[in-house]
Write a protein that binds this DNA or RNA. Sequence first.
DNA 1: TTTGAAAGCGTGAATTC
DNA 2: GAATTCACGCTTTCAAA
Lengths: 145, 145
Amino acid sequence: MEETDRKILALLAQDGRMSFTDLGRGTGLSTSAVHQRVKRLEQRGLIKGYGATLDHEQMGMPLTAFISIRPFDPSAPDDCPDRVKDIPEIESCWSVAGEESYILKVRVETPSLLEGLLARIRAAANVSTRTTIVLNTFYENRPVM
Amino acid sequence: MEETDRKILALLAQDGRMSFTDLGRGTGLSTSAVHQRVKRLEQRGLIKGYGATLDHEQMGMPLTAFISIRPFDPSAPDDCPDRVKDIPEIESCWSVAGEESYILKVRVETPSLLEGLLARIRAAANVSTRTTIVLNTFYENRPVM
DNA sequence: TTTGAAAGCGTGAATTC
DNA sequence: GAATTCACGCTTTCAAA
């Protein structure tokens, strides 16, 4: 992948609704040339999708937390992501190296709903949890490339 | 905010490039009605922006990590986010309640670049760090609403 | 990659509910 | 105040070169 594609990706990371015409202006290509490149980037999976970034506070989900997870029984099959994937409050799920096995990022409306969520996670996956409450989001998902 | 707006937000969170025409079909409104609503949601800040989701592995930044931060000197002014905001490898920056004061999420190309990044962060903000390497991203930034 | 053309979309004003 | 209709110009999309 080269220069022009990286430029297109940078522009789309910044403004996911930018028109092909403007992408063309931004890269010095014709509209259909960028169009084809974007389609190819989508097909190759370099662009995984497009999304609007919402203000969760205004949407009534002001509480964000990280939940670090370690299995109770280290010998049990380790399918935690599968067991929690249908819990809609979980925004992200990573497996990690370190003291814990997984980190979840969750969003909820209230502390008491967080309590209920933790109980559900512990029950679904038979794990112990350590919760870190987010006090302030300075920035999130800045384009890094 | 009501039903229709939530529906629009859900659709745009899922596909940030959906046309106003399709948003209209999805909500039972005319094109210009959704158009007006989306513009209002943008103005009110409920929609903070639109972005493409990129595949960082394919882009040559396969290493993701969380860096937990605590100040060396608890009495010093606590302006860590300000001091690290120009480091481009940092994708997200949260302040948190718990043993550490901040969590950063970073993306780099190689382990040795992570080493250099950690040194830069420690020097810029006079903090100690604890790094958790991401082994696998099962999912990230799923729409939660 | 570009050109060119058809179809579809965005946008605003006027209108109605 | 919010929805619809309509009309214009611009954008998307695809085939052909």
